[in-house]
Structure formats: structure tokens, C-alpha cells
Write a protein that binds this DNA or RNA. Structure first.
Lengths: 192, 192
DNA sequence: CTCCGAAGTTGACACTGTCAAGCGATCGTG
DNA sequence: CACGATCGCTTGACAGTGTCAACTTCGGAG
């Protein structure tokens, strides 16, 4: 009956989390929505953690893609770095379910799911590469890492405060919210 | 038998979360550790969400205290702002259980627990006050909010990446980690 | 003494994740 | 063609969970 139960399970899981939060993710409810018995998902995933791990990996892939796309076009290194940062925040705002799971490390044992760790490192590498291009070869490795952390912290903090903190509640609609994001990124870029 | 069951329930909850993550928080296990029946905690808390809400409120109070203490002593507005930011990160590193709960809004319905919202606003007000002092009265309200978001995003991102992201795994011990925090805050302060 | 509310217990219910076993169809191989 | 194996999935069971309801126990207040 199922065209592709594995994909349907992942889809239903995302849907369920977006409705009821991570705590509402129930394998049995997922199976129900997929129209199969409560054990059918086990044919494709070892357990609940494996489903979450698959979502986390997918999330990092999507984030990497977005950042690479945003920073691939023409422009100075600084401009491209800013665009990647904006893509980071935009991803969090558009895919909050994925984004949240990606930063709940207690959910995903990296020893058990090494592909997740690779996917995460790959996303980080995009940012490192852009900082590298911006500061040039005459900057020490330690300082480079500090600058990476600073940029990463800013966009990550902005993203999480918007979707999970008090910042998000301050804006009545997506437009004013996006303008605020622009202003914060601009303020940061100008002061750097 | 209990000296103060309410406090013991909260304590056991924090302990349990720190051992097994939020998913491991079980009312029955909490009751077991407190040496009471599985229903005893219900005498002090309406349900599981009420326990979490109490922890979130407590967490915001502790964070506010730390930031106020760090920024109360002498120094320029900029110095005091930096110290408050460092206190924010330090709090997250020392009390990760509280800090994580504070930014999982799906756990706490603010309509149901308004005291939690007040506590959160109070913490934010500390930061707003410091930015106010730093930029002075000749700066517009909109720009002030942008600057608050920038500072808040930086320390919040740094904190969450250290406790829940790939940043934390990079440092073998607390000392090198703290030095990195210092360097990032310094880099940010100098570029601003 | 009586009564009442506070503090805590016992029992039940529906729900969860997961282990174990089974079932029909399809397929590769003899 | 026959036939055992494997795939995709189902049924059944079990311990653990949060929470509702009803019960006990007991220290004061009137």
C-alpha cells in the first residue's frame, strides 16, 4: 500500500513535531498517520532516536545547501559572509523543526550516527571557509577560530532567540521581523 | 518524613534532567528519589509542566541576579555590558539544565504561568538598561533595540553553541573554553 | 470530642517505546 | 517448477509513563 513508507514516516514525524513539539513525537501516532501498524516504522528505523537522527542529518544538509547557495554568487568576502549568515537565520525561521532538533545533542548519539557529525562539520566548514577568505592568510589560526565563533554565535543566537526566545514575540509579522534581522546583521557588519 | 517535599521534587527533577536529559524527566522517578508515592508531587504541582515552569522561573531569576551582580560594580557602560554578557555565558555553562529549559518555550505556556514571562522580561531588562547607558539618549529607540538584539544574540549564541552545539566539543577543558569565551567577547567589544 | 483540611497513598486508565513471533507475497536458486 | 529465504508488515505482549479518582492518616481549631 505504501509508496515509500520510510519517507512518509519522516514526513509525519516533522508534521507531528511542528504541531505538538518534540514531546508530541510518538512512533505510534506517526504509524497511525502513515496508515500502518505501530511496528511498521521499525522496519526502516531501529528506534525513535534513529528517526530523529535522520531528521538532524537532513537538517544539516539543508542548512549547508542554503549557506553555500547564498555565498556562492559574486561579491566581496564580507558580503558573501553576511549572505551566508542571513541564510542561516532564514533557515531557522523557515524550518524551525529541523533547526531545533539539530541543536539538541542529547537526542543524537554521534558515535551511533556518525553521518550526523559529518553533516554538522560540513555546515560549519562553509562558515570557516568564508571567514578564511575574509581575513586572509596573514591572520593566525587561533584568531580565525575566534572570528568564526563570533560570527557563528551572532547568527545562531539571533536565530534561536527568534524562534525560541523572547525576540520572536516582539514582531507582529514576518516582514517586521525580517527587517529587524537585516538591521542587526547590518549593525554587526558595520561595527566589524 | 519529608522536610520540604516541594523543594526535594524540584531538586530531584534537576538532578534527573542533568543525568538523562529532559526526556528522562519522569514524575514517578522523581517521586521514587524523593521517597514518596508517585502521586505525592501532585500535591505541590498541578502537573509535569508546572514543575518545569517552576524551574524556568527560577532559572530566569538566577540569570538576572548574576547579570545584575556582574554589571553593578564600577566601570564604563561598555565594561559593565561586557561583564553582564560574560555572566550570561557563564550562567549557561554552569547551569545548563536551567538554561536549556528557559529556551524551550513549547514546555511552558506563558498564559498559564505568567510569572515565568515576568521573570524572562526582567532578565532582558537588565541588558536593555545597560545598552541604554552605553549608547546614551541621543540614539533612537529602534536603533537601541537593534543593538540590544545584537549583544543578546552574540552571548546567547555563544552560550548555546558551547553547551549544545559543536563549539563545546572543541575544548578539552574548562580553562581553554573560558579563554575562548574571553577572546570572542573581546573581539566583539573591540570591533563594536 | 468533632470536624476539617493538609499531606500522602493506592489503584486504575490510556498511552508510550520496544521485544518477540507470525504471516503472506515475492524472488533467487536448485 | 518447487521451495526455502527474505522483505514488508501485522499482532500481541510487557514494563513504564502522566494523570484522574478515591482513600487514609493526622494535627489542630472550634
Amino acid at each position: 500500500m505504501a509508496i515509500d513508507l520510510k519517507a512518509r514516516v519522516l514526513e509525519a514525524s516533522v508534521q507531528l513535531i511542528s504541531e505538538q513539539g518534540l514531546g508530541g513525537l510518538s512512533l505510534r501516532e506517526v504509524a497511525r498517520r502513515a496508515g500502518v501498524s505501530h511496528q511498521a516504522p521499525y522496519h526502516y528505523f531501529e528506534d525513535k532516536a534513529a528517526i530523529v537522527a535522520a531528521l538532524v542529518e537532513e537538517g544539516f544538509h539543508r542548512l549547508t545547501e542554503r549557506m553555500m547557495e547564498a555565498s556562492s554568487r559574486n561579491g566581496t568576502a564580507t558580503q558573501r559572509l553576511v549572505r551566508a549568515g542571513r541564510a542561516y537565520v532564514t533557515f531557522a525561521l523557515e524550518e524551525p523543526v529541523y533547526f531545533r532538533l539539530m541543536f539538541r545533542p542529547e537526542l543524537t548519539d554521534l558515535k551511533r550516527f556518525p553521518a550526523v557529525e559529518f553533516a554538522g562539520d560540513r555546515a560549519l566548514a562553509v562558515l570557516q571557509q568564508l571567514v578564511d577568505e575574509k581575513v586572509g592568510a596573514h591572520t593566525g589560526q587561533v584568531k580565525k577560530e575566534v572570528i568564526v565563533s563570533m560570527h557563528w554565535s551572532l547568527v545562531h543566537g539571533l536565530a534561536t532567540l527568534l524562534i525560541d526566545g523572547q525576540l520572536g514575540e516582539k514582531f507582529p509579522n514576518a516582514q517586521t521581523r525580517n527587517r529587524h534581522v537585516e538591521q542587526v546583521l547590518k549593525e554587526f557588519a558595520e561595527s566589524g
